[in-house]
């Protein structure tokens, strides 16, 4: 928040200096401010919309997980309070759908006869497996770009969920005159420098929502941003709930102490 305030000041400053200091031909490729969009979790009393979380998880699973890891999320987080609202059985079923590298068998083997890594079905204790074995493999499969892990992306970017939403919905614009998109990159003015390595990830009906909601790009973006906000901050609802109680307590206590203070000092005059 402080950084946003300072950045606004900086943007004003840059706007003031740009005509004076930069040559007429150079474009200012500073990223656009994030789009204004409402999220259910905004504000001190906001909560996660469970239906949106589940839809967003579906988008992550079917679209994003091809390239992006979710390293800090474990399958047991899926049935936690303040989260997606899956039951333990549902979370177990989701986990079992994933193949996790197996521990050595009784013979000490971890590869089968063909040289493929032995796997086992996931359990609640496992974390979401990464699509790539290491950074080099990730880059090799993505034209040298490294798709960032998404489990903290909302906290790791200024603008948070609004930034994520702006990026995934920001691909439809045409570059302005005089701007050449770098080879192998895509134009997205919500990304600093306007050249982003990620191809547009969402299209209408990229997923078929199990709850029947119409899967427009906007809907998918909104849902996946909600899911990723939860992934970054799964304790948000608990935090706000405890916070409300704590603040009510502290305000009442302050009031009581104020009256005690006045009473103790009253006899001095």
């Amino acid at each position: 928040m402080m950084r946003t305030a300072f950045s606004l000041g900086l943007a004003m400053g840059l706007l003031a200096t740009a005509p004076a200091l930069t040559p007429a031909l150079a474009l200012d490729t500073t990223k656009l401010p994030v789009k204004k969009v409402d999220f259910s979790f905004d504000g001190p009393f906001g909560t996660y919309d469970q239906a949106a979380l589940q839809r967003g998880f579906q988008v992550y699973k079917e679209v994003c997980s091809a390239c992006h890891g979710l390293d800090h999320i474990a399958f047991h987080n899926l049935d936690e309070a303040g989260g997606l609202g899956f039951t333990e059985a549902q979370a177990k079923a989701i986990a079992a759908g994933y193949k996790i590298p197996a521990d050595p068998n009784d013979k000490g083997e971890i590869f089968d006869d063909k040289g493929t890594r032995l796997t086992r079905p996931g359990t609640l204790a496992d974390k979401f497996p990464n699509p790539f074995a290491n950074e080099e493999a990730a880059r090799a499969n993505n034209d040298g770009n490294l798709p960032p892990d998404l489990s903290l992306i909302v906290k790791a970017r200024e603008g948070g969920a609004h930034y994520v939403y702006s990026i995934v919905t920001g691909f439809h614009l045409n570059p302005p005159k005089g701007f050449t998109v770098t080879a192998g990159k895509y134009y997205n003015p919500y990304f600093e420098g306007w050249n982003i390595g990620m191809p547009p990830p969402l299209t209408d009906n990229a997923v078929t929502y199990s709850d029947g909601t119409k899967a427009t790009v906007d809907q998918e973006a909104h849902d996946v941003a909600t899911f990723l906000a939860w992934a970054s901050d799964p304790k948000m609802e608990e935090r706000k709930r405890v916070g409300f109680g704590a603040l009510v307590f502290l305000i009442v206590l302050s009031g009581l102490l104020f009256f005690s203070y006045r009473k103790v000092w009253a006899d001095l005059h």
Binding site: M1, F244, Y261
Partner: peptide, 24 residues
């Protein structure tokens, strides 16, 4: 008592950040 009162106000401000703007 005076210190306790102002400390409580300070803790209330502290709590505002902890619970409602933890990354401020």
């Amino acid at each position: 008592v005076k210190d306790a009162f102002y400390l409580c106000c300070f803790v209330a401000l502290f709590a505002l950040f902890v619970f409602y703007a933890p990354d401020f």
